[in-house]
Nucleic acid binder design. Structure first.
Length: 644
RNA sequence: GCUGGAGUGGCGCAGCAGGUAGCGCAACUGAUUCGUAAUCAGUAGGUCGUCGGUUCAAAUCCGAUCUCCAGCUCCA
């Protein structure tokens, strides 16, 4: 019979596998292949294709093959752990975006030394060249085989409920419950690194036992592993939580508390620059600025639903149980406050759309282990806004919000790394949400239609909605690949109902408006964190805390340097003067380490000629030019918000 | 909140079979007046996260607590 392998016709006998076909085509190609794809299914090389089937071989370059490689690596890890710790109980061990992990229940958590031992054992197993053999059992047989593995028992129960056969993979002395697919044998896993050992809840449920998770990564060759580890090292250097502190953008203080970063002058200047720009941009687009209180009586949150659905996340002032006294809470969201602006008087359909913007500080009582640098904090400031709309304005205004967010993200250079997520409610978890299933279906239907009409490419996130409505979340990944929301645009009908917001339509009838909750650039702390990481601390000039540093070559030119400094400062450029009697090379080095965009060096020649020698952080030596020319150049870089 | 790791002068570290703290860089003072990194000389700076306990004696041992880091869970 014939099959189509990598686009070529290959003759194959009954019972022969893809590997046989590949080998007969070209042994070198067969050796490179890790698995294959038939239709849209990833298969093992032992797969026996049907007459005329189209098969494509996959090498490590392909992400699907990487996943297979890493999944087999996780079995290898489990095998090594079982050999060293026979009492360890197995949970699950999948491949992830950059490697694999396996969860175990062990008496004592793994130490760094344990990981070394396990790695050594894994390498030993690789040399044994064990083959992976698949076999299937009935649920009963499976339970018997896994009788000492409580977590596997639970997994088998789930499959048994569906009446499925249970598949297993055996490699030498180790057998694991697994759907596959896998590598043919373990011999290709030549380069292995176990990266960390941490706790992880069984099934991701905080109420269930905490297991010990080992993260690892593996490659075909040692050189590839080294390259990967070097990249991780590079990422660590960009980490905003390290770099942001080193470069003095922010700090934290034991006596202030967790999740409450202190913005140092540099961080505050960047945020001020971004904030002014966003506020101006919103004004241009018809937003009205509001300023509303940072806290309110509990009554407000009872109306909005926060009291019932978000109390754990709020900082409450006073004792909610004492009904004789007023109880306040810091605001975790701006919505109910900004709605009061709308509710100030009766509104006409002619007043809509009403676009309200506010640079809003919010307080959320995150759990103590959640805080992370500037990315997860307890107090943050967001470019907040709400649009109150007639139904016929919804799509157009949603589009406007999306355009504004994209414009902002693009200007700061982050858009290219963003992805979009349509965050929906979970009909099986209704406790978390207000409103009826019908209302949710309607809101999500409308939002889905808008997204499709706008051609937004998105993934769907179930149970990711806000408690009052679905969201379009714009997601960003940090240097370590961890994803968070940077911008969100939400369609809400439910809170409008809670607050009885209405307008009078053309027929004189009271009608319920639609509301869009949205942000232009997300929260400034988080955005700053991502910018520090994206630019490795070298923020674009227009937002850099210091844009130019003037370096006199020696005391002889200090007067002239001061003059240049004053000229630049008077022109609105954020400039510093390095007055110290240090060697010029030393001054330059410091300016470089502080990632200052431009330095102008004033030597004796320049002082005499009224010129400056300009050196750019990014473009290197820009030559000697008159002060006025440099000023024009700087103004252009800043006004165009150039990404340098 | 959970699991693990960590907190020693501004930063990076040493000291931890208990006897009251050092090193490098940075800082400061003076000299050097220098063209793309670290010249010379000198000076200052720490109740070893905090509180409590054991001890004649604690940075070193014990307990509690705070903060930071990795991960889980949760979220912008």
């Amino acid at each position: 019979m014939k099959i189509l392998l990598n686009g070529k016709d290959i003759e194959l006998h009954q019972g022969q596998s893809v590997f046989d076909a590949a080998f007969s085509m070209d042994p070198a190609i067969a050796r490179e292949a890790l698995c294959c794809v038939a239709g849209d299914q990833v298969k093992e090389l032992t797969y026996q294709p049907a007459e005329g089937e189209e098969i494509t071989l996959l090498t490590f370059e392909d992400d699907r093959a990487k996943k297979v490689f890493w999944h087999t690596s996780s079995h290898l890890l489990a095998q090594a752990v079982k050999r060293i710790y026979p009492n360890a109980k197995l949970a699950i061990g999948p491949a992830i975006d950059a490697g694999f992990y396996y969860d175990f229940e062990v008496e004592t958590p793994f130490t760094a030394e344990d990981l070394q031992k396990i790695t050594a054992e894994m390498k030993k197993i690789v040399k044994e060249r064990l083959k992976l053999e698949r076999f299937e059992l009935s649920a009963e047989e499976a339970k018997e085989l896994m009788k000492d593995e409580p977590y596997k028992q639970e997994l088998i129960e789930e499959h048994a409920g569906k009446g499925e056969k249970i598949s297993f993979y055996r490699q030498g002395d180790f057998t694991d419950l697994c759907a596959g697919p896998h590598l043919f044998d373990v011999s290709k896993i030549k380069a292995i690194a176990l990266l960390s050992a941490t706790g992880a809840y069984w099934r991701g449920d905080a109420n269930r036992p905490m297991l010990q998770r080992i993260y690892g990564v593996s490659f075909l060759k040692a050189a590839e592993l080294e390259e990967h580890l070097a990249k991780l090292e590079e990422a660590r250097k960009r980490d905003h939580n390290k770099l942001g502190r080193e470069l003095e953008y922010f700090t934290t203080s034991d006596v202030v508390g967790q999740g409450l970063p202190i913005m140092l002058p540099k961080g505050a200047k960047v945020i001020q620059t971004l904030q002014r720009w966003v506020e101006d941009e919103e004004e241009k687009r018809g937003y009205l600025l509001t300023k509303t209180p940072l806290m309110a009586k509990s009554d407000l949150y009872k109306i909005s639903g926060h009291w019932d659905h978000y109390l754990d996340g709020m900082f409450v002032l006073g004792d909610p149980a004492d009904e004789t006294k007023e109880c306040f809470a810091m605001r975790p969201m701006t919505c109910p406050f900004q709605y009061q602006v709308y509710l100030n008087r009766m509104r006409s359909y002619r007043d809509l759309p009403m676009r309200l913007g506010e640079t809003s500080t919010l307080f959320r009582n995150e759990e103590s282990g959640e805080m992370h640098g500037l990315i997860r904090v307890r107090q943050f400031t967001i470019s907040e806004g709400h649009l109150i709309l007639r139904p016929d304005q919804l799509e157009e205004e949603f589009k406007g919000c999306l355009e504004l967010a994209k414009y902002c993200l693009d200007t700061v250079g982050m858009l290219e790394d963003c992805t979009f997520r349509f965050s929906q409610w979970d009909p099986n978890n209704t406790d978390k949400y207000i409103g009826t299933p019908e209302q949710w279906e309607e809101a999500q239907g409308i939002m889905g239609k808008i997204l499709d009409d706008l051609g937004v490419e998105y993934t769907i996130g179930i149970d990711e909605a806000a408690f009052y409505g679905p969201k379009l979340d714009i997601q960003y990944r940090n240097v370590f690949g961890k994803e968070d929301t940077i911008v969100t645009i939400q369609v809400d009908q439910l809170l409008a109902e809670q607050f009885d917001m209405t307008y009078i339509d053309q027929n004189g009838q009271k009608v319920r408006p639609y509301i869009i909750h949205r942000t232009s650039l997300g929260c400034y702390e988080r955005t700053l964190a991502y910018l520090i990481e994206k630019y490795a601390g070298a923020l674009p000039t227009w937002m850099a805390p210091t844009q130019v540093r003037v370096l006199p070559i020696s005391e002889k030119t200090l007067d002239k340097a001061s003059e240049v400094y004053e000229t630049l400062r008077a022109a609105g450029i954020r400039v510093e003067l390095d007055e110290r009697n240090e060697k010029i090379g030393y001054k330059i080095r410091e300016a470089q380490m502080q990632k200052i965009p431009f330095m102008v060096i004033i030597g004796e020649k320049e002082a005499e000629a009224g010129t400056v020698s300009v050196r750019g952080r990014q473009d290197g030596d820009l030559g000697v030019m008159p002060v006025a020319d440099f000023l024009t150049y700087m103004k252009d870089v800043i006004e165009t918000k150039a990404k340098k």
